[in-house]
Design a protein around this nucleic acid. Sequence first.
DNA 1: CTGTTAGCGCGTTCAT
DNA 2: ATGAACGCGCTAACAG
Lengths: 312, 312
Amino acid sequence: MSTINDVSRLAGVSKATVSRVLSGSRGVKEASRAAVLQAVETLNYRPNVIAQSLLSQSTGCIGVICAQENINQTTGYLYALEKHLSQHQKHLLLRFASGKAEVMHALEELTCGLCDDVLIIGARFPLDIPYENVILVDCLEFDAANSIQFDHAFAAETACNYLIKQGRRQIALIAPETSCPVEQVLLGYKRALENNFLPFNRNLIFMDATSSSVALQVLLNNSTTVNFNALLVADEQEAQRVITQLQAFNKSVPGDIMVFSLAGTLHLPGIPTIPAIEYSMDAMAARIVSRLNEKTESVAGSSVLRGDLIIP
Amino acid sequence: MSTINDVSRLAGVSKATVSRVLSGSRGVKEASRAAVLQAVETLNYRPNVIAQSLLSQSTGCIGVICAQENINQTTGYLYALEKHLSQHQKHLLLRFASGKAEVMHALEELTCGLCDDVLIIGARFPLDIPYENVILVDCLEFDAANSIQFDHAFAAETACNYLIKQGRRQIALIAPETSCPVEQVLLGYKRALENNFLPFNRNLIFMDATSSSVALQVLLNNSTTVNFNALLVADEQEAQRVITQLQAFNKSVPGDIMVFSLAGTLHLPGIPTIPAIEYSMDAMAARIVSRLNEKTESVAGSSVLRGDLIIP
DNA sequence: CTGTTAGCGCGTTCAT
DNA sequence: ATGAACGCGCTAACAG
């Protein structure tokens, strides 16, 4: 790769002039401007962004650490994020990490000058970040200063209200800690029940189950004593899993049991659409990018994103 | 962020000594080594990788341009790739691009010193790359020097052989140019037919159809004159789409028509598994990383990856 | 064993 | 208008 020295030599001017032509172009004699442009063309010169970064102390790289346990998801959110970032001349440095140790390790590697800022997405474990320029997206810390949250309480409340209006008053909830922030979900769940003057039945709630399959089985086994005609699950994958299991036990969906996904739908042909809360990945990306730009002006804070109700 | 100067000042040694301690640690007096380590600790100093990159002329960043038309896929391949790359101390710089212009634009932005190498994945359009350090993965150019190809001919041949052994001798093929390399697929398709002494029926082949739905409809409308009891499609998404359409026309799957996906399965609960060719993303990632390391030793070439047959 | 010097490629003074 | 010089943070070569 040719450098600015090669260009200045070929054009018969100094490095400074070359630099001037390529950046501002102001106050340069037309002759030398043309010569520089010509030399740039023949040498196919492009300024080395690393050298520029060293000087400007910013690389334009945004680290994105995906901490989702549930990796088998669509690229939807990465796509939306990348589109918004590249529109703002920023690069997306991708990293997957499961568990706190891996996240912190990735963070170490990205914050040595490589990335201007780092996003941590979907961590379902506590995380105390010692760095400034880190934004937590849909992570556990609710009150962290620099975080963008999905309003899971709102989602659960909306879900319950919808189900209740559909005549489903016995709503089971299977939401393991690893897939969603349980306190938030439970908060919304209870709020909806209260507002509809319905009793809270602890036997319908499964938050600590290691496996959602086991939780559902407990429900099915006790179905003579514990009634339920709706089921709230963390995401669409969980939904499909429980639907299969329900059908194996002769429960029709949504006839007997209405299954509701608290996060997203897959929109795949062949899969029947179920009611769900869906978060706009585009809105999320927009929020993130605006936050990144805000940071330059040293404004910060926590913001909350609410999902749309999808009705099949 | 503190610099090497801060450390050297605090430790009372020169920058060079600090550098020595942090890299080689060989031939440094124990006293000053301890002083440096102490200063590093208190200042929480970490070398700036950008400055190191400027000197070493390599950033450890690998650009990955995803040119898939079909974006709604799983993160599977990105996950596998990132895991392999980070294992080799390399960073994955992600970029989505549709169409040649966008790909070339992304390439321009990444090859200005930011990325040591660039991967272009899944481009279904011609692409003449003017740069050295670019590897084409599952792209159109079959004979490009630096490419890693999926053996689509082998996939189609395997698929047909399997279907024929299952008693399906009228195999329709819907493979639009945008989703797979048509020549390759057709090659394998024809080879299998020849080896099984079956006639080639042009009316079963749809390669240029703008929409696979239209193609299938042509087949269904002509079903009195053109028989088919198996259907080869590009990927699982296509498969689910055509299955829905087939069922709407009272064709049972796989009873009347066996649908075969030429690339991948989703393995989602709720979706019945169909026969398919599945490429190991882990094997692909391993191949890519080994090619990346080979390049350092200036060895190159084209290699081909074959997929596994998945039987439901 | 360690400090000094030079230079990676670039932008930005400060002179001229 | 433009060239020389400096510095971004770091490592490598040389000298002591």
